[in-house]
Design a protein around this nucleic acid. Structure first.
Lengths: 297, 297
DNA sequence: TGAGTTGATAGATTTTATCTATCAAAACGG
DNA sequence: CCGTTTTGATAGATAAAATCTATCAACTCA
């Protein structure tokens, strides 16, 4: 039964019987039969078909919701029993928004000191993708904005607040200033994240609110790419202050506080609101709570 | 997998492989194999055995906890899908403490008016049994005390407060009074519920607190039996006022308010804290919230 | 129209689940 | 202390299911 529910989850993820089957490690007829069996046992069609996958019926959506929970609980049960016997061992699957990637270390380092046998996989994702992956049990926790998108059924631990700085060469326009305003920044050609990133949307709104149309000369989904451009001293960018500090400055590069309208954007850890959580995730949330006090201002 | 977890739940209930198997509708070797299979898949012993069932290991208790949730969620999923197709149909399994039995009607009658196809099974149980049955998924909801025993993971809806009256013949001692005190009641020979009932313990404490050793002439787990004795006019009892009113008085029988220390005992509906609840249970909780306002004072 | 995609179906095969029958160990009772 | 009963494990046979390969029909798109 639970494996059939996993078929459904894979189908929701892949929107394709063949690929869902592959993801589950079975053949396509097996997955089709599994889905059909759930439908028969419930006496309701769950998937709209017509020579191809066409989404779920309303009943299917409800079953999907339950399936996520049941499958998640079943995994949590396995993990907990395993932890009782072998201690905290396994792999935590995390995702973080690009501007928070450099902060992941503040969680993983003390976590590893406490639980040396836990391994990590960390993906760089948009805030929306992080919530979707959390929902689909593809990650155990995420680092993302807590105060914008609706979060859903998650436990959230605030970690710190994003404040922005202009990264610019000392000999470029504005490069000699101690502080700048958003209105001034809006007139500088910038390198920013791609528009699917919430950070880009936040910064772009702050810039536009000054009445000036910002010039985005270069965009990327990689902070490393942005930073490597800015480092040449020939490009400018706006970055969270902590990130700028982590990446480090050169003698030609300055990180200048931006004054003016402060928009509060809290970044924190999000994990499924499962009670109890899996031991690995529970330990991460505990670590986040500990770390939060030393970061948050 | 889920059916194996049901085996575990049955075993926890019956504490006996043979009876658990019978309860699941399988043979004993089948159930034994099912339990063993879970143990193998987790790599941990869950049940202490030694020629007979000897309880669960610590890991077993944890698995049991998860199993209750997973099995409950799986049932809720089935019920919800069924309700989407056929409306609210099925059977609600309830239990109530004896003194609340006469109040069940205030929930079931309006419920039935709204959902005519739902059937009911109602058991008379002690407050402790009700919580245990709720835990074991043997009932969907219960009517019991909300403010004494620890309730556990349940949703509780307060319905009304139990206040006590002396039921006594008009020509018996105290029979001519408009009010009596607990100290006076303690000197009258009484019929009460058996000591496993919380109501008995509550009343007995109120009586003892007056310093007099109460005389319990007759005890039973059935309110009907107590009432039929009191109705003869030759026995006396202490009952919640609402119950006395429901059962009705005769011309020789009086229901006299008891003054003195008021101990608050709220009675309410308890249902599993599942999110979302099964549709049948959700409707009952909704009904309870509606009814509560008209009952509670 | 023809190649490529997609999911359902048929039939064979393997795997799993379950049953009956039996056994060994412990508990019980005189 | 010895038969009897209770209890859960085990063996072997059988039934049920899950899964695979191969194929098909419907649709899509160039």
């Amino acid at each position: 039964m639970i494996d059939k529910l996993e078929f459904l989850l894979a189908l929701a993820r892949e929107k394709h019987f063949g690929r869902a089957a592959e993801a589950c490690g079975v053949t396509q007829p097996t997955l089709s039969a599994g889905v059909k069996q759930i439908e028969d046992s419930f006496g309701v069609l769950l998937v709209n078909r017509g020579s191809r996958f066409q989404g779920f019926t309303p009943e299917g959506e409800r079953v999907l919701d339950w399936a996520r929970r049941i499958v998640g609980d079943a995994r949590a049960m396995r993990e907990e029993v395993h932890a009782l016997k072998h201690g905290l061992v396994g792999r935590l699957r995390l995702a973080a928004i690009p501007t928070a990637l450099a902060m992941v270390e503040t969680l993983t380092t003390p976590y590893r000191a406490r639980h040396p046998d836990v391994q990590f996989t960390v993906w760089s994702r948009t805030s929306i993708e992080i919530l979707a992956h959390l929902e689909n049990l593809e990650i155990d926790a995420g680092l993302t904005y807590l105060d914008n998108e609706p979060l859903g059924r998650v436990t959230a631990v605030p970690l710190y607040r994003e404040r922005y700085r202009l990264l610019v060469a000392a000999d470029a326009p504005l490069g000699n200033r101690d502080t700048v305003t958003w209105a001034e920044v809006a007139k500088v050609p910038l390198c920013l994240l791609t528009p699917d990133m919430q950070n880009r949307r936040i910064i772009e709104k702050l810039l536009r609110d000054t009445g000036v149309e910002p010039q985005i000369m270069l965009e990327s989904d990689s902070m490393i790419l942005l930073y490597s451009h800015v480092r040449t001293g020939r490009w400018a960018s706006v970055m969270p202050s902590r990130l700028a500090a982590t990446l480090g400055l050169t003698d030609v590069l300055r990180s200048i506080p931006i004054t003016g309208p402060e928009s509060a954007h809290t970044i924190g850890l999000v994990a499924p609101a499962r009670e109890p959580m899996t031991p690995l995730t529970a330990a991460l949330v505990a670590e986040a709570r500990r770390v939060a006090s030393s970061l948050y201002d």
